[in-house]
Amino acid sequence: MKKYFLYILITVLAVKANAQDGFKPSVKGTQYKILANNTGDKIKIGDVITFHVTQKTDKDSLLSSTYQTGRPAQAQVQAQGDLMDIFPLLALNDSVLVKVPTDTIFKAQEDHRPPFLPKGSNLLILIKIIKVQSLTEAMADRDKAMAAAKEEAAKIEAQEAVIADKYVADHKLAVTTTASGLKYKITKMGTKPKPAVGDTVVVNYVGHTLAGKVFDSSIEAVAKAGGLQQPGRVYEPLTFVIGSQGIIAGWQEGLQLINEGGKAMLIIPSKLAYGPDPSGPDLPGFSTLVFDVELVKVNRVKTSAVSSKPVASTAKKPVAKKAVAKKPVATKKKQ
């Protein structure tokens, strides 16, 4: 009986404490406090909402903020899920502060609890509703944004092509342009067949911008001459399988145009390289890249005479060392 009354007392005190700091429970028990309450229709199940969200500790340490990233969150309101019992309480331009006990977040997984969210602490989530749409309206907006992005990408691609053509003209290069937009020039003919998808290739390379700045190389002398700072880098040819992931499309296509033992210059538009994303201080988004490559060796996939299906060669293939994974041909690599 004493335990029962003690439980009631604790519950009453907890409710009183929440009332004093302005928080109150939703139907599902989520503690919330509406900071800005505007007139207008409340959010409905099925609506698509766009909102800014900031997460802080109860010591006021900032953990994340969409205001900082410049990319607000978006979600379709469902009958179940985190915060879904809070959204229907709000209207456009409303703000709400939600208090989440970290003990519930890390229940049964204490080993994942970070030191800045100790036991008994709370996570404070501030939400600001900036757009409320029906699903149809949200999809129309998405399609419009995708069309605008596609149009912008086409403009940038055309500008890149003009710049690349000027580079070719200024350097008096005789290049071949493929259907994808890759430009290449064979600078040394190899004497053995070209590689195909599935073959393992061993490649020496030098990568530089159209302005001539070397941003990476597998050759130590070239890297040092270019002023590259790569502590711990193992300088050796890059080894990978044609068609494997993590290698930019310009390399995948370009190396299949070179005979084993040959060399070539590859002028690679950004759509076949790192795209709109920056890849280091010397490689802003939409960078056209120039690679001088040497196809040192090709370990070819053998074909079984019985099944006629490609099988892996029994010969031991060169394996790229761990340091090679940091080289610039890996997609979205950072220098």
Score class of each variant (00 low, 15 high):
Asp143Lys: 10
Asp58Lys: 07
Gln80Ile: 11
Leu289Tyr: 06
Pro101Asn: 02
Val197Gln: 14
Ala154Asp: 11
Pro284Asp: 05
His171Glu: 09
Asn93Leu: 05
Val96Gly: 00
Asn259Thr: 11
Tyr205Gly: 00
Asp141Asn: 07
Gln133Asp: 14
His171Met: 08
Ala305Gly: 05
Ala79Gln: 15
Val48Asn: 06
Arg71Val: 14
Ala179His: 11
Gln20Asn: 02
Ile125Gln: 10
Ala73Glu: 12
Met139Trp: 03
Lys185Val: 03
Pro88Phe: 03
Ser313Gln: 02
Ile45Lys: 13
Thr288Pro: 02
Met189Gln: 15
Gly70Ser: 10
Phe291Trp: 05
Ala158Val: 08
Ala305Gln: 11
Ala223Gln: 03
Ile105Cys: 00
Ser64Pro: 01
Ala211His: 13
Ala148Phe: 03
Val241Lys: 11
Val132Ser: 04
Leu124Tyr: 09
Gln245Trp: 08
Gln159Glu: 15
Arg71Ala: 15
Ser217Asn: 00
Lys144Phe: 00
Val175Tyr: 04
Phe215His: 04
His208Asp: 04
Ala169Glu: 15
Ala149Asp: 14
Asn18Gln: 10
Ser307His: 06
Thr54Ser: 12
Ala36Trp: 06
Glu137Leu: 07
Leu97Asn: 02
Ile8Val: 15
Asn37Ser: 12
Ala221Gly: 11
Leu135Gln: 11
Asp141Gln: 06
Ile186Phe: 07
Phe291Pro: 01
Leu182Met: 04
Ala211Tyr: 10
Tyr7Thr: 13
Gly227Ser: 06
Ile105Glu: 00
Lys317Ser: 09
Ala315Gly: 08
Lys155Arg: 13
Lys263Thr: 12
Ser307Glu: 02
Pro318Gln: 02
Ala149Leu: 13
Lys332Ala: 12
Ala17Gly: 03
Gly46Asn: 13
Gln80Ala: 12
Gln159Lys: 15
